[in-house]
Design a protein around this nucleic acid. Structure first.
Lengths: 139, 139
DNA sequence: TTCCAAACCTTGGATGTCCAAGTATATTGT
DNA sequence: ACAATATACTTGGACATCCAAGGTTTGGAA
């Protein structure tokens, strides 16, 4: 019980910090994750369905994030060449620039200075990874 | 970085499970926490400002939870005897019954069967408690 | 080939969270 | 005592998340 509430509180602390750091870039952590996923993908484009599975959010949540990213000119929805149902997400040039800048700030201000000792971070990752695995996370 | 995303994902897994378990009672985890806090308080009533501090949510979030709890007849807002600004929250009889039933199910289905080994849960609690302390949590 | 189930995405609605701003009441300092 | 400040709560708006339901397009099965 204590462990579960601690996880929830800690997550909300991290989320608030991330959102604060990302605010100057017009991003939230949810939208940053979309950009980061696109940045990692080798071809630079990804079907929305893949993105929502990777990010572990419902398709509807992704739709709403992408709506905002597209309004901001950071990503584009393009038709899939062979599957009419699918829409591919692509970073725009502007999206790539914002991603790099935002990632750098997150690395500096959040990840490098998370408030966790390296040993603690490693233990957390280990425990939570096996928990998530048992919980069927990581489809 | 991995630790932080693991914490966030795990929190959302726990939250989804809790909400699923609580759904039959017409509760969400956020609203359950309000009821549980009132259940713990010795006098059975608590100013909203205290509740929002204890639960670590903004006053506005609490207002919205309490609106729904009050509509469902589970809590009551009563005026503070000496401070006209303050409103006290009180469990109704129905609220107390729902709280007991919901708590029992959470204990059975979530806390006792969290997917964490006791040793893991203890380590998590320890690491996250010192993190939260350093982060200035627990006002 | 035709038809029905499955997959992909979006819309609409509910909830929770935050912030900014507004109203009401207390408290503090001069 | 009065004015300025602080506290308590609510309202309105933005965002993220989920679920249920609907439209399109595929693909497999009869």
């Amino acid at each position: 019980m204590a462990a579960i509430t601690a996880v929830m509180r800690s997550a909300s602390i991290f989320l608030q910090r991330a959102d604060t750091i990302l605010k100057p870039y017009g991003l939230t952590f949810a939208r940053f994750e979309v950009l980061a996923l696109l940045g990692f993908s080798s071809r630079g484009s990804l079907p929305m369905s893949h993105a929502s599975r990777r990010l572990q959010v419902h398709a509807t949540s992704l739709t709403s994030s992408v709506d905002r990213l597209e309004s901001a000119g950071l990503v584009r929805r393009v038709p899939h060449p062979t599957d009419g149902r699918t829409r591919l997400l692509e970073l725009t040039d502007s999206g790539r620039e914002v991603l790099e800048a935002a990632r750098e700030q997150l690395n500096i201000q959040l990840f490098a200075d998370s408030g966790l000792e390296p040993r603690e971070a490693a233990e957390l990752s280990g425990i939570l990874a096996s928990f998530r695995h048992r919980a069927g996370d990581f489809l």
